[in-house]
Protein backbone atom coordinates (compact mmCIF):
# COMPACT_ATOMS: atom_id res chain seq x y z
CA UNK A 1 0.00 0.00 0.00
CA UNK A 2 1.36 3.36 -0.90
CA UNK A 3 -1.12 5.09 1.38
CA UNK A 4 0.36 7.58 3.68
CA UNK A 5 -0.49 6.84 7.25
CA UNK A 6 -1.34 9.98 9.13
CA UNK A 7 0.44 8.53 12.10
CA UNK A 8 -2.48 8.90 14.46
CA UNK A 9 -3.38 5.92 16.55
CA UNK A 10 -6.71 4.50 15.56
CA UNK A 11 -8.06 5.11 19.05
CA UNK A 12 -7.27 8.77 18.66
CA UNK A 13 -9.90 9.25 16.02
CA UNK A 14 -12.19 6.32 16.51
CA UNK A 15 -15.04 8.37 17.83
CA UNK A 16 -14.60 11.83 16.37
CA UNK A 17 -13.68 10.76 12.88
CA UNK A 18 -16.51 10.04 10.61
CA UNK A 19 -19.08 11.90 12.55
CA UNK A 20 -20.87 13.75 9.86
CA UNK A 21 -20.66 17.31 8.69
CA UNK A 22 -22.96 18.33 11.53
CA UNK A 23 -20.01 17.94 13.87
CA UNK A 24 -17.92 21.01 13.33
CA UNK A 25 -14.99 19.73 15.35
CA UNK A 26 -14.26 17.01 12.83
CA UNK A 27 -10.57 16.36 12.35
CA UNK A 28 -9.01 15.50 9.02
CA UNK A 29 -10.34 12.56 7.10
CA UNK A 30 -8.07 9.66 7.91
CA UNK A 31 -6.28 7.62 5.31
CA UNK A 32 -6.13 4.19 6.78
CA UNK A 33 -6.65 0.54 5.90
CA UNK A 34 -10.03 -0.94 5.17
CA UNK A 35 -9.55 -3.49 7.94
CA UNK A 36 -8.98 -0.76 10.51
CA UNK A 37 -11.82 1.40 9.22
CA UNK A 38 -14.39 -1.41 9.40
CA UNK A 39 -12.99 -2.60 12.72
CA UNK A 40 -13.36 0.81 14.32
CA UNK A 41 -16.45 2.20 12.68
CA UNK A 42 -18.90 -0.66 12.01
CA UNK A 43 -20.56 -2.08 15.09
CA UNK A 44 -22.97 -4.95 15.65
CA UNK A 45 -26.54 -3.69 15.37
CA UNK A 46 -25.64 -0.65 13.25
CA UNK A 47 -27.61 0.61 10.27
CA UNK A 48 -25.16 0.50 7.37
CA UNK A 49 -25.61 1.79 3.83
CA UNK A 50 -23.13 0.41 1.31
CA UNK A 51 -24.38 2.48 -1.59
CA UNK A 52 -23.62 2.28 -5.28
CA UNK A 53 -26.07 2.16 -8.16
CA UNK A 54 -24.63 -0.66 -10.32
CA UNK A 55 -21.39 1.37 -10.47
CA UNK A 56 -18.73 1.74 -7.75
CA UNK A 57 -20.29 -0.86 -5.46
CA UNK A 58 -18.15 -1.25 -2.34
CA UNK A 59 -17.57 -5.01 -2.57
CA UNK A 60 -14.23 -4.96 -0.75
CA UNK A 61 -15.78 -3.17 2.22
CA UNK A 62 -18.70 -5.62 2.28
CA UNK A 63 -16.29 -8.54 2.35
CA UNK A 64 -14.40 -6.99 5.24
CA UNK A 65 -17.65 -6.70 7.21
CA UNK A 66 -18.25 -10.43 6.56
CA UNK A 67 -14.65 -11.26 7.58
CA UNK A 68 -14.99 -9.34 10.82
CA UNK A 69 -18.26 -11.19 11.43
CA UNK A 70 -20.47 -8.25 12.25
CA UNK A 71 -23.97 -9.30 13.27
CA UNK A 72 -27.52 -7.99 13.51
CA UNK A 73 -26.94 -5.24 10.97
CA UNK A 74 -29.70 -3.26 9.32
CA UNK A 75 -28.57 -2.82 5.74
CA UNK A 76 -29.92 0.01 3.63
CA UNK A 77 -29.47 0.33 -0.10
CA UNK A 78 -31.64 1.19 -3.08
CA UNK A 79 -30.34 -1.71 -5.15
CA UNK A 80 -29.04 -4.52 -2.94
CA UNK A 81 -27.14 -6.83 -5.25
CA UNK A 82 -24.47 -9.49 -4.92
CA UNK A 83 -22.59 -7.99 -1.96
CA UNK A 84 -25.83 -7.75 0.05
CA UNK A 85 -26.69 -11.31 -0.98
CA UNK A 86 -23.31 -12.34 0.46
CA UNK A 87 -23.79 -10.36 3.68
CA UNK A 88 -27.28 -11.84 4.15
CA UNK A 89 -26.15 -15.41 3.44
CA UNK A 90 -23.18 -14.98 5.78
CA UNK A 91 -25.55 -14.16 8.63
CA UNK A 92 -24.60 -10.51 9.18
CA UNK A 93 -28.03 -9.01 8.57
CA UNK A 94 -31.35 -8.87 10.42
CA UNK A 95 -33.14 -6.16 8.44
CA UNK A 96 -33.02 -4.78 4.91
CA UNK A 97 -34.23 -1.34 3.82
CA UNK A 98 -34.36 -1.38 0.02
CA UNK A 99 -36.21 -0.64 -3.19
CA UNK A 100 -34.99 -3.26 -5.70
CA UNK A 101 -33.23 -6.49 -4.80
CA UNK A 102 -32.04 -8.59 -7.68
CA UNK A 103 -29.10 -9.68 -9.79
CA UNK A 104 -29.49 -7.15 -12.60
CA UNK A 105 -30.19 -8.76 -15.95
CA UNK A 106 -29.65 -12.24 -14.45
CA UNK A 107 -32.44 -12.93 -11.97
CA UNK A 108 -32.99 -13.43 -8.27
CA UNK A 109 -30.71 -12.91 -5.32
CA UNK A 110 -30.98 -16.46 -3.98
CA UNK A 111 -29.61 -15.74 -0.50
CA UNK A 112 -32.00 -12.81 -0.09
CA UNK A 113 -34.86 -15.00 -1.27
CA UNK A 114 -33.87 -17.86 1.05
CA UNK A 115 -33.82 -15.47 4.01
CA UNK A 116 -37.24 -14.02 3.13
CA UNK A 117 -38.92 -17.25 2.03
CA UNK A 118 -37.33 -19.76 4.44
CA UNK A 119 -35.73 -17.66 7.18
CA UNK A 120 -32.21 -18.97 6.41
CA UNK A 121 -29.71 -18.36 7.91
CA UNK A 122 -31.96 -16.07 9.94
CA UNK A 123 -35.26 -14.29 9.35
CA UNK A 124 -34.86 -11.03 7.47
CA UNK A 125 -37.16 -8.09 8.19
CA UNK A 126 -37.91 -5.96 5.15
CA UNK A 127 -38.62 -2.25 4.90
CA UNK A 128 -39.50 -1.93 1.26
CA UNK A 129 -39.66 1.25 -0.81
CA UNK A 130 -39.57 2.41 -4.41
CA UNK A 131 -36.43 4.10 -5.75
CA UNK A 132 -37.98 7.57 -5.69
CA UNK A 133 -38.91 7.14 -2.02
CA UNK A 134 -35.46 5.95 -0.95
CA UNK A 135 -33.82 8.77 -2.86
CA UNK A 136 -36.08 11.23 -1.04
CA UNK A 137 -35.27 9.57 2.31
CA UNK A 138 -31.51 9.93 1.77
CA UNK A 139 -31.90 13.52 0.55
CA UNK A 140 -33.91 14.30 3.70
CA UNK A 141 -31.19 12.68 5.80
CA UNK A 142 -28.52 14.78 4.13
CA UNK A 143 -30.68 17.90 4.57
CA UNK A 144 -31.25 17.16 8.25
CA UNK A 145 -35.00 17.19 7.69
CA UNK A 146 -37.30 14.73 9.48
CA UNK A 147 -38.82 13.39 6.28
CA UNK A 148 -38.67 13.45 2.52
CA UNK A 149 -41.65 14.29 0.35
CA UNK A 150 -42.52 13.08 -3.11
CA UNK A 151 -45.37 12.54 -5.51
CA UNK A 152 -44.96 8.82 -5.15
CA UNK A 153 -46.43 5.44 -4.26
CA UNK A 154 -49.74 6.46 -5.88
CA UNK A 155 -51.64 3.33 -6.83
CA UNK A 156 -49.05 1.03 -5.23
CA UNK A 157 -49.65 -1.52 -2.45
CA UNK A 158 -46.29 -0.66 -0.85
CA UNK A 159 -47.78 1.81 1.69
CA UNK A 160 -50.06 -0.99 2.95
CA UNK A 161 -47.05 -3.04 4.01
CA UNK A 162 -44.53 -0.36 4.97
CA UNK A 163 -45.72 1.89 7.79
CA UNK A 164 -42.81 4.23 7.01
CA UNK A 165 -44.68 5.41 3.93
CA UNK A 166 -47.38 7.90 4.82
CA UNK A 167 -49.37 10.52 2.99
CA UNK A 168 -49.53 14.19 3.85
CA UNK A 169 -51.43 17.16 2.51
CA UNK A 170 -49.54 20.00 0.87
CA UNK A 171 -50.18 23.09 3.05
CA UNK A 172 -50.35 25.30 -0.04
CA UNK A 173 -52.27 23.32 -2.64
CA UNK A 174 -53.90 20.53 -0.66
CA UNK A 175 -52.30 17.92 -2.91
CA UNK A 176 -51.83 14.51 -1.30
CA UNK A 177 -48.13 13.62 -1.31
CA UNK A 178 -46.08 10.72 0.03
CA UNK A 179 -43.73 11.18 2.98
CA UNK A 180 -40.90 8.91 4.08
CA UNK A 181 -38.75 9.34 7.19
CA UNK A 182 -35.21 10.61 6.67
CA UNK A 183 -32.69 7.79 6.27
CA UNK A 184 -29.68 8.45 8.48
CA UNK A 185 -27.33 5.47 8.52
CA UNK A 186 -24.89 4.97 11.36
CA UNK A 187 -22.30 4.29 8.70
CA UNK A 188 -22.33 4.93 4.96
CA UNK A 189 -19.72 3.07 2.93
CA UNK A 190 -18.95 3.98 -0.67
CA UNK A 191 -16.27 3.28 -3.25
CA UNK A 192 -14.91 6.15 -5.37
CA UNK A 193 -12.29 6.61 -8.04
CA UNK A 194 -9.90 8.91 -6.21
CA UNK A 195 -9.00 10.65 -3.01
CA UNK A 196 -6.20 13.08 -2.37
CA UNK A 197 -3.90 12.76 0.61
CA UNK A 198 -6.02 15.05 2.67
CA UNK A 199 -9.07 12.86 2.12
CA UNK A 200 -11.07 14.83 -0.45
CA UNK A 201 -12.96 12.23 -2.51
CA UNK A 202 -13.81 12.39 -6.22
CA UNK A 203 -16.29 10.19 -8.07
CA UNK A 204 -17.77 10.38 -11.54
CA UNK A 205 -19.94 8.43 -13.97
CA UNK A 206 -23.11 6.95 -12.50
CA UNK A 207 -22.95 8.63 -9.10
CA UNK A 208 -26.22 7.20 -7.77
CA UNK A 209 -27.23 8.42 -4.35
CA UNK A 210 -23.74 8.29 -2.80
CA UNK A 211 -23.39 12.01 -2.06
CA UNK A 212 -26.71 12.04 -0.21
CA UNK A 213 -25.93 8.77 1.60
CA UNK A 214 -22.57 10.13 2.82
CA UNK A 215 -24.03 13.44 3.97
CA UNK A 216 -26.90 11.63 5.72
CA UNK A 217 -24.61 9.33 7.71
CA UNK A 218 -23.16 9.63 11.17
CA UNK A 219 -19.90 7.97 10.08
CA UNK A 220 -18.42 7.43 6.64
CA UNK A 221 -15.94 5.00 5.10
CA UNK A 222 -14.72 5.53 1.54
CA UNK A 223 -12.61 3.06 -0.39
CA UNK A 224 -10.90 4.44 -3.50
CA UNK A 225 -9.08 3.13 -6.52
CA UNK A 226 -6.13 5.37 -5.78
CA UNK A 227 -4.88 8.04 -3.44
CA UNK A 228 -3.27 10.81 -5.44
CA UNK A 229 -1.34 13.99 -4.74
CA UNK A 230 -3.80 16.17 -6.65
CA UNK A 231 -7.46 15.39 -7.42
CA UNK A 232 -7.64 17.83 -10.35
CA UNK A 233 -11.42 17.67 -10.10
CA UNK A 234 -13.47 19.78 -12.50
CA UNK A 235 -15.37 22.37 -10.43
CA UNK A 236 -18.81 20.76 -10.80
CA UNK A 237 -17.86 17.13 -10.36
CA UNK A 238 -18.94 15.15 -7.33
CA UNK A 239 -16.35 15.91 -4.68
CA UNK A 240 -16.90 15.02 -1.04
CA UNK A 241 -14.76 17.44 0.95
CA UNK A 242 -12.39 15.86 3.45
CA UNK A 243 -14.21 17.21 6.46
CA UNK A 244 -17.42 15.25 5.70
CA UNK A 245 -15.50 12.03 5.13
CA UNK A 246 -14.45 9.76 7.98
CA UNK A 247 -11.98 7.14 6.84
CA UNK A 248 -10.45 6.70 3.40
CA UNK A 249 -8.76 3.46 2.36
CA UNK A 250 -7.11 2.68 -0.96
CA UNK A 251 -8.40 -0.62 -2.34
CA UNK A 252 -7.52 -1.07 -5.99
CA UNK A 253 -10.29 -2.94 -7.78
CA UNK A 254 -12.43 -2.64 -4.64
CA UNK A 255 -15.66 -2.39 -6.64
CA UNK A 256 -15.10 -5.69 -8.48
CA UNK A 257 -17.21 -7.32 -9.93
CA UNK A 258 -19.04 -4.03 -10.43
CA UNK A 259 -17.06 -1.36 -12.22
CA UNK A 260 -15.13 1.83 -11.70
CA UNK A 261 -15.46 4.09 -14.70
CA UNK A 262 -12.05 5.03 -16.04
CA UNK A 263 -10.46 2.01 -14.29
CA UNK A 264 -12.20 -1.25 -15.19
CA UNK A 265 -15.44 -2.55 -16.72
CA UNK A 266 -18.24 -4.45 -15.04
CA UNK A 267 -17.46 -8.16 -14.87
CA UNK A 268 -20.77 -9.39 -16.22
CA UNK A 269 -19.49 -12.98 -16.26
CA UNK A 270 -19.18 -12.92 -12.47
CA UNK A 271 -22.74 -11.63 -12.10
CA UNK A 272 -23.91 -14.53 -14.25
CA UNK A 273 -21.74 -17.06 -12.36
CA UNK A 274 -23.16 -15.85 -9.03
CA UNK A 275 -26.55 -17.31 -9.94
CA UNK A 276 -25.19 -20.88 -9.70
CA UNK A 277 -22.83 -20.21 -6.77
CA UNK A 278 -25.59 -18.73 -4.63
CA UNK A 279 -28.51 -20.96 -5.59
CA UNK A 280 -27.83 -23.63 -2.94
CA UNK A 281 -26.80 -23.07 0.66
CA UNK A 282 -23.84 -25.47 0.59
CA UNK A 283 -22.25 -24.05 -2.56
CA UNK A 284 -22.70 -20.55 -1.17
CA UNK A 285 -21.16 -21.48 2.20
CA UNK A 286 -18.20 -23.18 0.53
CA UNK A 287 -17.65 -20.13 -1.66
CA UNK A 288 -17.84 -17.59 1.14
CA UNK A 289 -15.54 -19.74 3.30
CA UNK A 290 -12.91 -20.21 0.63
CA UNK A 291 -12.93 -16.78 -0.96
CA UNK A 292 -13.92 -14.37 1.81
CA UNK A 293 -13.70 -15.78 5.34
CA UNK A 294 -10.32 -17.45 4.89
CA UNK A 295 -8.69 -14.74 2.81
CA UNK A 296 -6.87 -11.89 4.51
CA UNK A 297 -8.10 -9.03 2.36
CA UNK A 298 -9.53 -8.11 -1.04
CA UNK A 299 -6.27 -8.93 -2.84
CA UNK A 300 -6.42 -12.35 -1.24
CA UNK A 301 -10.03 -12.72 -2.37
CA UNK A 302 -9.09 -11.84 -5.94
CA UNK A 303 -6.17 -14.29 -5.92
CA UNK A 304 -8.32 -17.11 -4.55
CA UNK A 305 -10.95 -16.41 -7.21
CA UNK A 306 -8.36 -16.45 -9.98
CA UNK A 307 -7.53 -20.02 -9.01
CA UNK A 308 -11.03 -21.19 -9.87
CA UNK A 309 -12.56 -18.73 -12.30
CA UNK A 310 -11.10 -17.93 -15.69
CA UNK A 311 -13.12 -14.74 -16.11
CA UNK A 312 -11.31 -13.02 -13.26
CA UNK A 313 -7.90 -13.24 -14.88
Amino acid sequence: MKNRDWGLGIGGWGIAVGTSCHNKSNPLAQITTLKQAIGEMVRDGDTIALEGFTHLIPFAAGHEIIRQRRRNLTLARMTPDLIYDQLIGAGCVSKLIFSWGGNPGVGSLHRLRDAVEQGWPAPLALEEHAHAGMAAAYAAGASHLPFGVLRGYLGSDLPRYNTNIKFIECPFTGERLAAVPALRPDVTVIHAQKADRRGNVLLWGVVGVQKEAVLAAKRTIVTVEEVVDRLDAPPNSVVLPWWVVGAVAEVKGGAFPSYAQGYYARNNAFYKAWDAISRERDTFLAWIERHVLTTADFDGFKRSLEEVASYVR
Binding site: E128, A130, H131, A132, Y153, L154
Partner: peptide
Protein backbone atom coordinates in the same frame (compact mmCIF):
# COMPACT_ATOMS: atom_id res chain seq x y z
CA UNK B 1 -44.26 -15.25 -0.27
CA UNK B 2 -43.83 -18.37 -2.36
CA UNK B 3 -41.58 -16.32 -4.63
CA UNK B 4 -39.86 -13.14 -3.61
CA UNK B 5 -39.37 -10.97 -6.73
CA UNK B 6 -36.89 -8.04 -6.92
CA UNK B 7 -39.46 -5.38 -6.00
CA UNK B 8 -40.47 -1.95 -7.22
CA UNK B 9 -37.31 -0.16 -8.30
CA UNK B 10 -38.41 2.92 -10.19
CA UNK B 11 -41.58 1.35 -11.58
CA UNK B 12 -44.35 2.84 -9.36
CA UNK B 13 -43.34 6.41 -10.18
Amino acid sequence: PSTRLPGAGGAPE
